[in-house]
Amino acid sequence: MPGTIDARLAELEITLPEARAPAANYVPFVRTGNLLYVSGQIPANEDGSLILGKLGDGMSIEDAQGAARRCGLFLIAQAKAACDGDLDKVSRVVKLNGFVNCTGDFADHPKVVNGASDLMVEVFGEQGRHARAAVGSSSLPLSVAVEVEAVFELA
């Protein structure tokens, strides 16, 4: 029988991607006490292709919001893996840190990272409301448009 969060994902017609292995010398998540730190997730389409781009240089805010949402899906997938498949163990989304690949004059970072933030509230409800940072960067790994990391509180 699916848990409350799995049922909510089904209701929203959201299928989580597979939690990805790290690309370098780090782990995908660390649990310490009741906190779960999930390493930065980069956006990939359902076919596995990375979502590349730079805001202020041809990429739209809407496309970047979609990329941030994909990062959020990977964050939730990592949380599910960390919780042995039971997302009901997530009692709170504590914080998201979003990094936006952009030109120096781009200033709408918060709008981009809303793609991930809105997803957390859709999926976890009131417990999905979180503290956040939205930061511009002159480049990101593999030229992706966005990277987002998270801290979750576990029951």
Rank of each mutant, 00 (worst) to 15 (best):
D118A: 12
F106C: 07
K111H: 05
N97K: 10
G104A: 15
L119K: 04
V112S: 06
M120H: 01
N101T: 14
L96I: 15
G98R: 11
C102L: 07
T103A: 13
D118W: 06
S117A: 13
V93R: 01
D118P: 04
F106E: 08
L119D: 02
E122L: 08
K111E: 09
A116S: 08
V121P: 08
F124Q: 00
D105E: 15
S117K: 12
V100G: 03
V121H: 08
H109W: 05
D118S: 14
S117Y: 05
M120Q: 01
N101C: 13
P110D: 09
H109C: 08
V121K: 09
L96N: 11
F99G: 08
D105A: 15
G104S: 14
V112P: 05
D108V: 00
F124T: 01
A107K: 10
T103L: 13
L119M: 02
D118V: 12
C102E: 10
F99Q: 12
M120K: 01
F99I: 09
F106M: 06
P110E: 07
V113H: 02
D118R: 13
N101M: 10
L96E: 11
G104H: 11
L119H: 04
T103M: 13
V100N: 06
F106Q: 06
M120S: 01
H109F: 08
A116W: 03
F124R: 00
T103V: 15
E122F: 03
N114G: 00
N97R: 11
D105Q: 15
F106G: 06
S117E: 08
A107T: 13
V93T: 04
N97S: 13
P110Y: 03
N101P: 12
V123L: 02
E122I: 04
V123F: 02
C102W: 04
F124S: 00
G104Q: 13
D118Q: 12
L119A: 06
V100T: 14
A107R: 09
V112F: 05
V93D: 01
A107L: 07
L96T: 09
K95F: 15
P110N: 05
V100R: 08
G115P: 01
V100C: 10
N114A: 05
H109R: 05
T103E: 13
A116Y: 04
D108S: 03
D105M: 14
D108A: 05
A107P: 00
K95W: 14
L119F: 03
V93W: 01
K111I: 04
S117Q: 09
G115L: 00
H109Q: 10
T103Y: 13
T103H: 12
M120V: 02
G104M: 12
G98V: 08
G98T: 14
F99L: 14
F106P: 04
L119C: 04
D108Q: 05
V94I: 15
D118G: 10
F124G: 00
F124P: 00
D118I: 11
G115Q: 00
G98F: 13
A107Q: 09
D118L: 11
C102Y: 06
A116N: 02
H109I: 03
V94Y: 15
L96D: 10
E122S: 09
F124E: 00
F99R: 12
K111L: 08
A107D: 11
V112A: 04
P110H: 02
P110V: 03
H109K: 05
D108K: 02
D105L: 14
E122W: 05
V100P: 07
M120D: 01
L96A: 14
L96K: 13
E122G: 04
C102K: 09
D105F: 14
H109V: 02
K95T: 15
V100K: 06
